[in-house]
Amino acid sequence: MEIVVLLKQVPDTESMISIADDGVSIKKEDIKWIMNPYDELAVEEGLQIKEAQGGTVTILSMGPQKAIEAIRTALAMGADKGVHINDPATEGSDALATAKILSAALKEIPYDLIIAGHRAVDEDNYQVAAAVAEFLGIPQVSMVVKTELGDGKIKCHRTFEGGSVVVEAALPAMITTQRGLNEPRYASLPGIMKAKKKPVDVKTAADLDVDPASVGTANRKVKIKTLRFPPERQAVQMIEGESPAEIAAQLVKVLHEETKII
């Protein structure tokens, strides 16, 4: 089973985000960068499938030089090799352009199953995996919490609001991960040592036959005009009283009168 995991390095979810001077991007210094949390689930799922069925797990990631850290983390968890699309021309690409670049890279990587996080927790676009699947002409099953492989097919439990469905897709297929799928392992020390020797191919847009003039910030279809912080809330109104009953009565009165919710 040839498994490819799409991976992205993103700011830690516990990071405070600052807006850069250009007003349309974030300050990238002084942030802790991590593997996108949903991609950790993707790597883990890939490894579990490989352990059960044999095969290889290839990590495919686009990002600047430092994104190699996230790729190495995945290799340290147990993935076999990496492909790192590292090209300043691709920086700032929107979801559609990113999907085009990744799809171009996937022309050269064999795959039966592609696993991706259902979203990256930076731009929160929820699009790249679906667009890659479309460009490759393969089925997608998103927000998966359970997989079963057999007979050239993958059976997935896909969650939705208020329930779930069991979906079967013929391989090759794309699935995206949702929390609950598995518990990602930590990289072991020997794993980290081994990862240093695992191969990582570095590619540019030109290597992939992608026109650099069709990607990157300048060629976004979805153009960010401004980034701003959400409006500040008014100062909190503390509700006080002698007893829980008194505080509760006071709160409900305020909610009733001021917010009309109750």
Binding site: I17, I19, E123, V222, I224, K225, T226, L227, P230
Partner: peptide, 13 residues
């Protein structure tokens, strides 16, 4: 974006 830590005003071409 970033889970609501910032808001982006975007236009689509």
């Amino acid at each position: 974006m970033f889970g609501g830590k910032v808001l982006a005003d975007v236009e689509i071409e």
